[in-house]
Design a protein around this nucleic acid. Structure first.
Lengths: 214, 214
DNA sequence: CACAAGCCTTTTGTATACACAGATGGATCG
DNA sequence: CGATCCATCTGTGTATACAAAAGGCTTGTG
């Protein structure tokens, strides 16, 4: 693996996981030493992070981890709506929809578990299931341009997610909404899939705004 | 101006204008000499080009100008539809819509000129007018995330445009469609703006597909 | 005491040198 | 005559050294 890739992957992970909180200055020499690479590949990593929007280049002071706040939430969800609603619509139009019925069922089962379970319910499997649905939609849409736009979007969403932790009730509702999306795609109904996605995004945004910082 | 910015701007322009056609290998030493900069800033420029999707990094052979063909057209327009339809919808919702009525009128006038004029009608003013509408929508949407996604999209569209030259008839129809979009935004009707945009994109794609390579 | 100007330190931007990997050509063996 | 292997060579990946610019601090003056 190239040193620049290593530096990029590590910095990106640290930023997304808030180990490098917004506002942190990423000095070239400092980070180069920390990651054990030279300044040249580290500069390339910083350039890629800037392109991703995870850092902003400040002249004279180097790169700083970009800010993330609730002010960006509406903007982020506007883009999300544009991309994900259309993605669901396109996914429902393709002929590679075999896995979606199975995914819908798994979401329904997950909702049951989340509803039944006590406080000790593991959340990780649910997030992975949601990720699987994203991947399945990407594969069905089969559009590298949309995929790239979604990748960038999801990176930012992962950072924002820290601002509002998910309550079990919300996760259960979310699981049902995801089941609806997967079901609509499996049924090959583009407008139903679009509507289900729109609904999910609306509820998701409402939840974050209501429970932010609490 | 930084040397890396200069190299990036120049390479990007050359690629978009097909002076560097798809498949061209961008050797680091070669391009560094041509542009009069060192390899370090040139590498940064190549990295940014790769992030834009204008070049792809090939292991062992360096970077080559990315391919562009009609195969990508459908994918490109799917993303365009997702972004521009939602952008029009959002623009029609904001309160900063003062300029759109004026733009609609200018498009109508431009359609007249394009309809009347002989073969000597200048096309450049019309393209600039279309660019003005794009900028006005960007400003009204006021969403940096959508704006960034649109920037990347427009870059690719500019490259594809070379595959099918616009006929005067198409430009005239396009002017009317643009007038409809601007008019709908000026009227503050989101769904009408979305519909007008959808129609415009559909016609635009049809035209390119029909007249490609002819 | 406050404000401004100049110097110093820190950090980025650029260039060059070196090492390694992959590709390509020729030569040799089957 | 063809295929495979080895050597060379071109080109990328990385490191380091140097220069330029920007910011902060100190000092001097009003």
């Amino acid at each position: 693996m190239r040193a620049s890739d290593k530096a990029y992957a590590e910095l990106r992970r640290d930023i997304v996981e808030w180990k490098l909180p917004p506002g942190t200055v990423l000095g070239e020499v400092e980070q180069a030493e920390r990651l054990g690479v030279s300044r040249t590949p580290l500069r390339e990593a910083l350039a890629r992070l800037s392109a991703d929007g995870l850092a902003v280049q400040q002249r004279g002071r180097g790169a700083v981890v970009s800010d993330v706040s609730l002010d960006h939430l509406d903007n982020l969800f506007e883009l999300r709506r544009a991309l994900e609603v259309e993605s669901s619509r396109l996914a429902a139009r393709t002929e590679h929809r075999e896995g979606f019925a199975k995914l819908a069922q798994r979401f329904t089962e997950a909702a049951d578990v989340l509803g039944r379970g006590g406080p000790a319910v593991a959340l990780e499997p649910y997030y992975r299931l949601a990720g699987e649905l994203d991947e399945a939609i990407d594969e069905a849409v089969d559009n590298p341009y949309i995929e790239q736009a979604l990748r960038g979007l999801r990176t930012h969403l992962a950072r924002v997610r820290r601002l509002a932790q998910d309550a079990p009730d919300r996760l259960r509702a979310s699981a049902f909404e995801h089941a609806s999306i997967a079901g609509a795609i499996a049924a090959g109904d583009p407008e139903l899939a679009a509507a289900a996605t729109l609904l999910h995004l609306s509820h998701s945004l409402d939840h974050i705004k209501t429970h932010a910082g609490s």
